[in-house]
Amino acid sequence: MSAAEALAPAPPAARPRSRAWRRFRRHRLALFGAAAIVVMVIAAAAGPWLIPFDPLHIDLRHRFQPPAGGGHLFGTDQLGRDLLIRLLMAGRISLTIGFAAMTVSTAFGTVVGITAGYYGGALRIALMRFVDAVLCFPQIFLLLVLAAFIQPSIATLTLIIGATSWMEVARVVEGQVRSLRERDFILAAETLGASGRYVMFRELLPNAIGPIIVAATLTVARAILMEAYVSFLGYGIQPPMASWGNMLNNAQEYLASAPWLAIFPGAAITLAVASFNFVGDGLRDALDARLDLH
C-alpha cells in the first residue's frame, strides 16, 4: 500500500467551533443578549466622549429635569447632573468589575477545580470540602463582612466579589476533569512522561473550556448584581463616583417625585444581568460537548 492511499479523504465534518456557532445562533435570547452586551460595552466605553456633559458637574438650576428635558435625554438628578452620562460612567465601573471579578474567580476556580480533579485522593477531598464550606455562607453575607473591613475601591471590590464567586467554576471544572481523568489520551500523555502541570493545562484544560466559558459568563452576571447590591447598601463604590448600585441607593428618596432616577439604573442592571444570563444559557447549549461526539 502506498502512501497516497492512506491519504483517502478524511470524512468531512464541521469543526466544533462552527457547529457550536450554529447551535448558538438558534438561541434568540442569547443572540439578543450578546447584542445587548456589545452595545452596552461600546456605549460605556465611547459614550462619555460623545455626550457633552460632565458626570460630576453640578448644576443646581437644572435639578430633577425629567427625561428629554433641557437637552438631557435621560433627565438629571437631584444635583442637576446628567443622568445618561452618569449611567454610562457607572456602566464602565459595573462592567469592569463584572469582567474583572469573573477573570479572578474563573482563574482561581479553574486552578482549584483542575487540581482537585487531577490529583484526586485526599487533596481533592480537602479542596472540595473547602469549596462546600465557602458555599455554605450566603455570598452576600460574606461580601458585606469583607466590604465592611476593606476600603472600597474598584480593585478591592473586584477581589472581594471574585473571592466569593469562584466556587461554581471550581465545581464544574472538577467534575469535568474527573470524568476526563481516566481517558486514554490522558494516560497517553502520562506514558510520555508529561508533568502534572502539562497534563492539567495542556491536555485537560482545553477539554473543560466549554463549561468554564459558560460558568464565567454567568459569573459576570452575578458579579454585576453583587456590585450593585453592595453599592446599593453603601459599602461599595462611593459617591460622587457613580455605579448602578449607588445610583439606585440615591434614587430611593425621590422614588415618587423623580422615578426615572430609579428606573434607568434599575433597567441597566436588569438588562446587563439578563443579557449575560441569556448568553450563558445559549453557550451552555452550544458548547455542550456531548452534541459533538458521534
Binding site: 492511499e5 483517502a8 479523504p9
Partner: peptide, 11 residues
C-alpha cells in the same frame, strides 16, 4: 489490505 477508507456517503 484494501487501501484507503470507505467513501463519504455525501460525496
Amino acid at each position: 489490505a484494501i487501501p484507503g477508507t470507505v467513501p463519504d456517503p455525501l460525496h
